[in-house]
C-alpha cells in the first residue's frame, strides 16, 4: 500500500501523516502540490492538517484550487480513497468533494486539546479496525472546525449514515458540552456518497503512541492499509 501525502504551502501535518502510515507498515511519500500527474501509482491520497496559504480568504479555499487538486478530484472520482484531516477536511469541502463548510469555531477560540469522538460507521475503508460506537481519545487543533451545511444536506448526511465521527462525552453521548466548535449535530467527520472520501477535524496521526497520550488513531491507518492490501 502506497499513500501520497500532499503538501501545500503552510501544511504542517504532512510529516506526521507520512510517519503514521509507515508506523502501521504502509508506504507513504510527500507530494508537492504543484506536481501535476504526481498521484499516479498511489493507492491512497492524504491531505494533511496545517494552515495552507495562511488560511487566507477561507481555510482550505486557495489550496482547493492548487494544480494537484484536479488530480485529487480525478483520483476520488475513480474510487481511490482520499482522507483529509483538519485543513485537509476544509480543503475537501472547498473542492466540493465533500458537502458543507467548516466555519469559525462558535466560541471564536482556537481549540488545541484532546477530545472524544464516537465511531459512527466501522464499515468504511478507513474504520474497519474500530468497533461500532467505539469512543476514541484523539486531539484536535483548529480554529475553523464548525461544520455547517444547509438543512437538506444535513438530513441527507444523517439519513444516509455518512457521519463517520461525532464529538461525544466520556459516556459516548453527543452533548453540547462535548462539542468543541459548535459543529452541527456534533459532526467531527463525514464521508462522501461513494464511501471513498473521508474528511475529519481530529488528528488520528497525532494519536499513534501511548507516550503522546493515545493510540486511538492507529486503527484508522491499519484499516486503510489492510483494506488496500486486500484489494491489491
Amino acid at each position: 500500500m502506497k499513500a501520497a501525502v500532499v503538501t501545500f504551502p503552510g501544511s504542517n501535518g504532512d510529516f506526521d501523516l507520512r510517519e503514521a502510515v509507515q508506523w502501521v507498515g504502509g508506504e507513504a511519500h510527500i507530494v508537492w502540490h504543484r506536481e501535476r500527474g504526481g498521484l499516479k501509482n498511489y493507492d491512497a491520497v492524504l491531505l494533511p492538517g496545517g494552515f495552507s496559504y495562511g488560511d487566507y480568504l477561507r481555510a482550505g479555499a486557495i489550496a482547493s484550487l492548487s494544480p494537484i487538486m484536479e488530480d485529487v478530484v480525478a483520483f476520488a472520482k475513480a474510487g481511490g480513497p482520499v482522507l483529509g484531516i483538519c485543513n485537509g477536511f476544509q480543503t475537501l469541502c472547498e473542492a466540493r468533494l465533500l458537502p458543507g463548510a467548516l466555519i469559525r469555531n462558535e466560541q471564536l477560540r482556537f481549540e488545541g486539546r484532546d477530545i472524544r469522538v464516537r465511531v459512527e460507521r466501522n464499515d468504511t475503508v478507513f474504520t474497519t479496525d474500530y468497533r461500532q460506537a467505539q469512543v476514541l481519545a484523539i486531539p484536535i487543533a483548529h480554529g475553523e472546525g464548525n461544520y455547517e451545511a444547509d438543512k437538506a444536506t444535513l438530513e441527507r448526511l444523517e439519513g444516509d449514515g455518512r457521519v463517520v465521527f461525532r464529538y461525544v462525552d466520556a459516556r459516548g453521548e453527543p452533548t453540547e458540552e462535548s462539542n468543541p466548535n459548535g459543529a452541527w449535530h456534533n459532526i467531527a467527520g463525514i464521508i462522501n456518497e461513494a464511501g471513498n472520501v473521508l474528511g475529519m477535524m481530529p488528528h488520528p496521526e497525532r494519536a499513534m503512541e501511548q507516550i503522546l497520550g493515545s493510540t486511538d488513531g492507529a486503527a484508522l491507518f491499519t484499516s486503510l492499509v489492510s483494506s488496500l492490501v486486500e484489494s491489491a
Binding site: 484550487l65 472547498e94 458537502p99 463548510a101 451545511a149
Partner: peptide
C-alpha cells in the same frame, strides 16, 4: 463563483 465566496456559507 470560483474562489472569493463559498456558496455554502
Amino acid at each position: 463563483r470560483k474562489l472569493l465566496a463559498n456558496p455554502v456559507t
